[in-house]
């Protein structure tokens, strides 16, 4: 607790923005050959599964399969882009490119650096998610003004996954260990959080377990707001995701400080 307070005190907003700006500058530069393909991925899923598989699948909760699927994929878009950024990309910057060492010789603190990295990871997820939200809106899979609430919320979701990814990054010493993160954590979330089928089809224990995973809540909110189905669960999930994002934010920063400043 004491060290979380120390973390909070050592963050300077200007420093965070400057770290963020570094990544933004490089992103703009490498965009066409490095980042652009990411945008196509959810569109490919949507086309192949929504339209192809959709022919074989009966309506779910009164929605055609593609209507059901589209807002769910919004959730995974947020998750993937931010997770990659604060795992592989951040680890490479920390360990191989020694970017953090370079920045730490300037007035930025380690807390600024890691907070800036998280903010950047969130931005990456957010850019992809907003783009995908635009795409599905154009195709008519968004049919509620409540979807406007997603514009701020998608950023929070992106930040949540950026934070979880950075926490893992702060704990591992070898880049190969990210395989475990994606195979044992991200992929199961992708498959069992209600994106492709309602989790009510899962056994009761699995449904319970889903309540404790982040993507379940994110997907629930995305779908609820995109389709204007605003029940109690949607608001509970908004609360849970926002609260967890706020509470966890300082954790990876603190672990990273203890790791790097020795």
């Amino acid at each position: 607790m004491k060290s979380l307070v120390k973390t909070a005190r050592s963050i300077s907003p200007a420093g965070v923005i400057r770290m963020w700006y570094r990544n933004w500058k490089i992103f703009r530069k490498v965009f066409w050959f490095a980042a652009a393909p990411n945008f196509l991925e959810p569109v490919i899923y949507l086309t192949a599964l929504g339209i192809g598989l959709g022919l074989l699948v009966q309506d779910i909760e009164g929605l055609s399969y593609v209507q059901f699927l589209a807002p769910g994929l919004l959730g995974s878009t947020v998750m993937y882009a931010s997770s990659f950024e604060t795992t592989y990309s951040s680890f490479i910057r920390m360990k191989y490119e020694k970017t953090y060492d370079a920045v730490l010789a300037t007035p930025l603190s380690i807390e600024d650096v890691i907070a800036g990295e998280i903010l950047w990871g969130a931005t990456r997820g957010y850019i992809n998610a907003l783009t995908f939200l635009g795409v599905i809106a154009i195709f008519g899979y968004v049919d509620s003004a409540a979807a406007l609430l997603l514009i701020p919320l998608l950023f929070v979701f992106a930040a949540l996954f950026a934070i979880i990814g950075m926490t893992y990054t702060a704990l591992v010493s070898n880049i190969n260990l990210f395989n475990y993160y994606f195979t044992l954590f991200i992929t199961p979330l992708f498959l069992f959080s209600g994106i492709f089928f309602p989790i009510s089809t899962l056994p009761a224990w699995a449904q319970k377990l889903a309540l404790f995973t982040p993507l379940y809540h994110v997907v629930l909110v995305c779908r609820g707001l995109a389709l204007g189905r605003l029940d109690q669960d949607v608001f509970t999930s908004i609360f849970i995701t926002v609260a967890f994002t706020a509470v966890l934010f300082l954790v990876p920063i603190t672990i990273m400080r203890n790791r790097l400043i020795k």
Binding site: Y21, R22, K25, K98, T99, A102, T106, L108
Partner: peptide, 23 residues
Amino acid sequence: PQETNLDTDLSVRENLEVYANYF
């Protein structure tokens, strides 16, 4: 530093621009 830690995705000038921004 003892170990080189420049931004390899950036040009010489851009490296300096980004670094100036930290200050």
